[in-house]
Amino acid sequence: MERKYTDDEIIRRVWDVLEIKNLMGRHAYFHAYDMHEAEICELWVSDESHQKTASFGQNWGYQVGIETIRSNYVDQNLAWHRAALSAICEKDSSVAHKSENLGIGTMLIHTLTTPYVEVAGDGRTAQGMWYSPGQVTVAGPDGVECMWMYERYGVDFIREQTGWKIWHMFIGTDFIVHPGTLMRDVPVPDEEASVSAPEGLDITIPMQAYSARHNFSEYPYIPQPYEVFDPKRGNGPEGNPAYKGYGAQTEGGTLQ
């Protein structure tokens, strides 16, 4: 796409990239700080039409619609914390069963590296890609489970009245290794079987959305210069080459 921008447009686009990187940084820290409700309210889309088509995808499929995302990311996460705390308290009486201890022993660090942010020619949307080498530590009654988790993010952003917002986020997990485990003992992803989502999650479109079985996956797509948003090249379900059809709950991702 060959397009000449004015100085005003150039500096706006440069600033857009900075703002989008900050937005993703906030996502990472909000998630780590267990501020999921605040994240949904402040960082994700707030326009009703965008909220209907918002999505969060992982290896096992897509959550579509902001309320589905909220029910998983906020409510179900809280339910897991409560169950874990109850089980921990039962085993360890030194841990008080109070709301301040929800999330005890948990640390989720998903770093953001290798940023590639492409702002649309029309300036209304942007797409970004990051590698995320991270670590996940969760506590349960049997102790703490830690793992190295290497992932790749593909994210669509949309400009709203109050600034850039997360619209479609896809996180593909390449591998998970527990400390002390040899890489050769980490199972190779299955060819055909769908990966199951963690119990309790409501997945709108269950599917094998991502696999590192053949190493680098074509999806999520590495961003390219573009003029207007195309859902077929986006990070929602319609952009996934393995996607076979939509569920009944949403009306599609076309930018109005």
């Binding site: 290497y150 050769r184 190779v188």
Partner: peptide, 17 residues
């Protein structure tokens, strides 16, 4: 660039990194 190189499918039928 703190990275890694990994292979899922290998002739040894086990992951490498």
């Amino acid at each position: 660039t703190p990275g890694c190189i990994f292979s899922s499918l290998t002739p040894r039928k086990e992951r490498e990194g």
